[in-house]
């Protein structure tokens, strides 16, 4: 087990390196350091000297990937790529191009993201599973037909309409909660209710359908027939036996996304102006702040790989038949 985990972590290193090279190339293939300097300093009337100073200050005055002037190992190390990447692997994100400390920004903005994403996940999961079990309970009746039509319709509505509609209905017409914004501490709750509700509702269509197909597969199994033969009621069979056995795919599906919750949701955060990591990333994209975008990409891929690893481990925990090798 331990050796498997270590092997997986070692395997992650080349992946992260590849991710880094890819984002680096994507950004610098058209966007030269000179362009970045001009962008940051303001487009017009920038002297050559100012650009040079900015590049030197932020460490962009080196060659991109290969320094031909140096010798030996320095040919690789005296480059923008090396200088900017090596610290990422130590989770030291350095300063953004506009001079802020990215690491502390991330630590600070992580919590609002989490405060939105975690309740959305938990509420969404319980709502989806309950509804799916109910649909399965009423299978082969008109209830199922009606609900599956309704689910397809819910699924066919763009998430943007849920957000705009929810903001308009609950925030503007009924004036139950503020439309957008954020506050520190417990005061944040009233800002979080609406986004959580909306993200749960937006996910019902596809979520319930997915869990329904999981349960329907499980219902055909032999142990379910045994349970029915014992004389258990259909409700007991579903909520005790089927749910427990379906937990394996459900759990592994959830574990994958757990680490990514830290990254927040781009759309929800920017719509509800919650100062989380999602809106941070969008702002960075719009300002073309390369350092932040790279830090976020790196963080995202680390968390994704961690999610994959956690999934494998959770498999062995919930299903003893699985052996890692």
């Amino acid at each position: 087990m331990m050796s498997y985990v270590i092997r997986r972590i070692l395997y992650a290193l080349p992946l992260l390196l590849a991710v880094n090279v890819l984002t680096f190339v994507l950004f610098f293939v058209v966007n030269s350091p000179d362009d970045m300097a001009r962008m940051q300093l303001g487009q017009k009337r920038v002297t050559e000297q100012a650009i040079q100073n900015w590049k030197h200050q932020h460490g962009y005055d080196l060659p991109l990937l290969w320094n031909a002037e140096q010798t030996g190992g320095k040919q690789l190390s005296e480059t923008i790529f090396y200088q900017k990447s090596i610290n990422l692997f130590l989770f030291d994100f350095g300063l953004s191009d506009s001079g802020r400390n990215i690491g502390s920004d991330i630590r600070q903005r992580m919590w609002p993201s989490l405060a939105l994403a975690l309740p959305s996940l938990i509420v969404g999961l319980s709502v989806n599973i309950t509804l799916a079990l109910l649909v399965v309970l009423f299978r082969n009746t008109y209830v199922e037909l009606g609900s599956s039509v309704l689910l397809v319709m819910l699924m066919s509505v763009s998430s943007l309409f849920y957000i705009i509609g929810g903001q308009f209905l609950i925030g503007k017409l009924l004036k139950l909660v503020p439309i957008s914004g954020y506050d520190d501490g417990w005061a944040a709750i009233k800002f979080l209710i609406l986004p959580v509700i909306i993200s749960v509702v937006a996910g019902i269509g596809s979520g319930v359908r997915w869990y329904r197909s999981l349960f329907l597969e499980e219902v055909e199994r032999d142990y379910v027939r045994t349970a029915r033969a014992k004389g258990l009621s259909e409700t007991q069979v579903l909520f005790k036996h089927v749910l427990k056995n379906a937990m394996i795919p459900i759990l592994t599906g959830v574990v994958v996304v757990l680490p990514l919750l830290f990254m927040g949701s781009l759309i929800m955060e920017s719509f509800f102006s919650i100062p989380g990591l999602g809106s941070y990333t969008i702002d960075a994209i719009n300002r073309q702040d390369f350092s932040i975008v790279r830090a976020m990409v790196f963080l995202g891929s680390v968390l994704y790989i961690a999610g994959l690893l956690l999934t494998d481990i959770s498999y062995t925990l919930v299903d003893p038949r699985v052996r890692l090798s």
Partner: peptide, 9 residues
């Protein structure tokens, strides 16, 4: 590698 980069980015 491609999967681990957030696709929006």
């Amino acid at each position: 590698t491609l999967n681990s980069i957030p696709s929006v980015l």
